[in-house]
């Protein structure tokens, strides 16, 4: 019990962020019209690609002789980038169409 409480005190900053972000996340998209569900999902999908930063850190820290870390880290960077770049490009493509008809 003591360790658990210590852990909370130690990480209180992070815990605050988590709680506030949960509310922000819910609040921010609360009034989305169903028309935008797909682009929104796709956009959110691109944003969680932020995991790429972890991959970059793993990759950058890997020792030169640690092949397992190098290979897995490299793979993680590739996959993470696909998630980010592909996600944003696909979302933009979807939304581009919404825009076109607006101008007409």
């Amino acid at each position: 019990m003591q360790t658990f409480l210590d852990w909370i005190t130690q990480h209180q900053q992070i815990i605050y962020i988590v709680i506030l972000m949960i509310f922000v996340g819910i609040e921010v998209i609360g009034h989305v019209p169903s028309v935008l569900h797909t682009p929104l999902m796709s956009g959110a999908n691109a944003i969680h690609g932020v995991v790429i930063i972890g991959a970059i850190i793993v990759m950058g820290k890997a020792e030169q002789d640690n092949y397992l870390a190098l290979i897995l880290g490299f793979l993680a960077v590739v996959l993470g980038t696909i998630n980010v770049v592909g996600g944003f490009v696909v979302t933009d493509r979807m939304l581009e169409m919404f825009k076109k008809k607006k101008e007409r």
Binding site: I22, G25, V28, H37, I47, H48
Partner: peptide, 11 residues
């Protein structure tokens, strides 16, 4: 991550 986690759940 948390933002998407929360927004995704609501969505």
């Amino acid at each position: 991550g948390i933002l998407v986690g929360a927004a995704g759940t609501l969505l």
